[in-house]
Design a protein around this nucleic acid. Structure first.
Lengths: 282, 282
DNA sequence: TACTATATGGAATGAAAATTCCATAGTCTG
DNA sequence: CAGACTATGGAATTTTCATTCCATATAGTA
């Protein structure tokens, strides 16, 4: 009945998907329709019944069975097993992982618990960042930084690793920056060379370092545009900045992650460098 | 028939689990058995049939139906829906997420693609770290650092943000460190004060900064124990170090993440500080 | 255009599943 | 210890589901 079925049908979702895509065009019209639906709604395929799926895909129940058979499976149920296996392999979601962390904390070494805790906090922070960031704002910040003659990187104490990373990475990519560290009030002088053609990237989290705020104020006074990365709308940087990102880092036992900030920093660095190189090319 | 069912039964897995746990003890013996099985085998509950689950849980099929009804559901199928919803909500696994990134790259802004790429790379790096790390090794490194009189933090160029983060965090936690930056060959002098009672934490990735290697060699000569964080068994640090961590950072378009290294750094910092404070307390 | 092969819709069928029912066992109470 | 109530196992029943079948439509070919 089926053209191919050399006993080695896909049993995992990835290869099944590949098979469906490959065979899709040589299948009859209605079965192509099923193929499309299957690839686009794998969850539904895993849990639905022939009748419910048929209704949603707008085909007859028999079409589903035929589809499965034309791929070489015994019937729909056989095919459905593969879609179900996909869900079994899925990664746990955050709530579950957190729960699991707590459940297994007893039988693990203290250091492993800490590692797991920070891993979770970091992953969660990154996921939140991705979900909450405003695309337009990201675009605006990149444009501002890409247009700047010199980027002044302001980040002290806890934020210093981030700004020093950006200084290093920008340097590698040929973008001119100035890493402002505020040792003994020398910092202000640095920024006092900045003009409206430059840009300040200020990073600060609670408790906001007073030097960072002072530097940002000096920049505002000189009409230097500011991109800020901070953690709250009430941050002093929020009102000073031309545009600003709110980053919520998850914490483990009170120690905040820095993963989201670092990820955003990497993004800005590469995006700005990329923007500059394409612009220069023209 | 059922005691409670005020039309607001759990429809999500988290609250269902809470309900089951809460009601478990007041249920009859066989139904408690079902409750236990359900909580411990949620996947099976989602995919199995009444017959198959009953067999695995070693109860009669009717017990499953009764269990569902005693919680307030119409029947087993009704309850099973909740277990299924849990799997639907699960996070995609890495392969799928990567695939999805590529699929949706067209209809997104370039900057979003970069952010997604780095987010993915960071999450993956952290997951790998957690999976591959050796607990005993982690313990050993923490012990070494906790016992040191002074911790010398050696990390240059790309690794400098990490060591500077640790310097900051250790400082906050009252652990004495020395951040070694190799400006103009001054570094060596720093390490030349170190003794066997201290410890060097060296961080370096390809291409290994020659200064970091030189510092590590100087430390070896003075019999100072070394904990290293690097990316390959062929790293010059691997052979010099007393113990070392291999970290594989995922990359996006050739730009390596730093999330795993940062997560390990946070772990070491907090674990060492914690170890010291408990020891001091005795 | 006629013929043939293939595809499709929809009802019929048979299998499998969930649910109910009932007889019996067990437990609690007076 | 008797009686009443609850719990349990397992068979009977009903519902739901996947699959097959067949009449009709569609497309391809001579």
């Amino acid at each position: 009945m089926s053209e191919i079925s050399p006993s080695e049908l896909p049993r995992d979702f990835a290869s099944l998907k590949a098979l469906i895509v490959a065979r899709a065009e040589e299948l009859p019209r209605r079965l192509t329709q099923v193929a499309t639906y299957a690839v686009e709604n794998p969850d539904e395929m895993a849990f639905g019944t022939v009748a419910s799926i048929a209704q949603n895909a707008d085909v007859q129940p028999s079409a589903l069975v035929r589809f499965a058979q034309s791929l070489g499976y015994q019937g729909f149920s056989d095919l459905q097993e593969v879609f179900r296996s996909r869900l079994r392999e899925r990664v746990l979601n955050y709530d579950e992982r957190l729960q699991q962390l707590q459940d297994h904390a007893k039988d693990k070494s203290k250091s492993s618990v800490i590692l797991d805790g920070f891993s979770e906090a970091s992953s969660k922070s990154i996921a939140d960042l991705r979900q909450h960031i405003d695309e337009n704002q990201l675009e605006q910040a990149i444009a501002m930084l890409a247009n700047a003659e010199t980027i002044y990187l302001v980040g002290l104490r806890r934020s210093f690793p981030i700004s020093s990373y950006m200084a290093y990475a920008f340097g590698k990519l040929g973008v001119r920056t100035r890493l402002v560290d505020a040792v003994g009030g020398l910092a202000q002088e640095d920024v006092s060379f900045a003009t409206a053609k430059d840009c300040v990237l200020a990073i600060s989290f609670t408790p906001y370092a007073s030097e960072t705020v002072a530097l940002a104020q000096a920049a505002v006074a000189r009409k230097v545009p500011i991109v800020a990365i901070t953690d709250s709308p009430f941050s002093p940087l929020a009102s000073l900045a031309t545009t600003w990102f709110e980053i919520q880092e998850a914490n483990f036992e009170g120690f905040r992650s820095m993963a989201a900030t670092l990820t955003l920093a990497m993004t800005l660095t590469v995006a700005v460098a990329e923007r500059r190189s394409t612009r220069k090319g023209k």
